[in-house]
């Protein structure tokens, strides 16, 4: 009990004194998850809208894959990216600037992008499917081209698309297994919030672990808070 309250006090001190080691970890976490979220949203939002609005053979199968992806254990995706990038793996053998190396932030970004993508695409699809098809008919009747109709539909689904992005962020910022595997949890290089918490706890350095935990909680809280605020604005107005 004493150890816990001690750790907590020390943790607050670390945060308040803006401990360099702490902030390095926070910054890397935000960079990795931020870039991964950006990439997965750039692909995932159009993909989700496309799946919702178009009809083609194989669409149902793709949707099943997508839903499977949403519930996929991230650690398995970590394993997949690991095998892909390892020395003997299909991508690991290629020497290219575009292909990230294992145990670098690039590898973590790749893994997180794959984890967040089905979240963003799946929630976007659900949001777009929730827009009354009659609205699309009306927009079309007002002279919209196919592209303009899609834009209007996405705009009608904007709250849901926002939820999709926040859900994607939540799924990667708090994920441990995959980043641990492909990032390696190397000090000053690939340690993010979650993996650092694991390591510091094992070392018995509870004050840093607790400080990181507080920040992680705060980040996920803020993400949800922002989402609710925006949601509230579009619903209430």
């Amino acid at each position: 009990m004493n150890e816990m309250s001690q750790g907590f006090i020390q943790a607050i001190k670390l945060i308040v004194s803006s401990d360099p080691e702490l902030w390095q970890i926070v910054l890397l976490s935000l960079q990795v998850s931020g870039i991964a979220l950006f990439v997965s949203s750039t692909i995932g939002i159009p993909a989700g809208a496309f799946l919702a609005l178009s009809r083609f053979t194989g669409r149902r199968l793709l949707i099943v894959f997508l839903y499977t992806g949403m519930g996929f254990p991230p650690v398995v995706i970590g394993l997949f990216v690991y095998l892909l990038l390892s020395r003997s793996g299909p991508l690991g053998q290629i020497e290219s600037q575009l292909i990230p190396r294992l145990f670098t932030p690039g590898a973590m970004i790749l893994a997180q992008t794959i984890i967040a993508f089905p979240m963003v695409a799946g929630f976007t699809m659900a949001a777009v499917l929730g827009v009354d098809p009659k609205i699309r008919l009306q927009v079309r009747a007002l002279g919209a081209t196919r592209w303009q109709t899609t834009v209007a539909t996405l705009s009608e689904a904007r709250v849901g698309v926002l939820v999709a992005i926040v859900a994607g962020f939540g799924s990667i910022i708090s994920e441990v297994g995959a980043v641990m595997m492909v990032g390696g949890n190397i000090e000053n290089k690939t340690r993010v919030l979650t993996t650092a918490i694991v390591l510091e706890t094992r070392k018995g350095a509870f004050e840093l672990a607790i400080a990181l935990g507080i920040i992680l909680l705060w980040l996920t809280f803020m993400a949800n808070f922002v989402m609710l605020r925006l949601q509230g604005r579009t619903v209430d107005e």
Binding site: L137, Q138, A141, A152, S155, E156
Partner: peptide, 22 residues
């Protein structure tokens, strides 16, 4: 050509933005 449907199917925007849409 344009249609006014039996239900108004308004966009989730302001009144002015709806009228401006076309």
């Amino acid at each position: 050509v344009t249609t006014v449907f039996q239900q108004p199917y308004l966009l989730n925007r302001t009144v002015a933005a709806n009228v401006q849409y076309g």
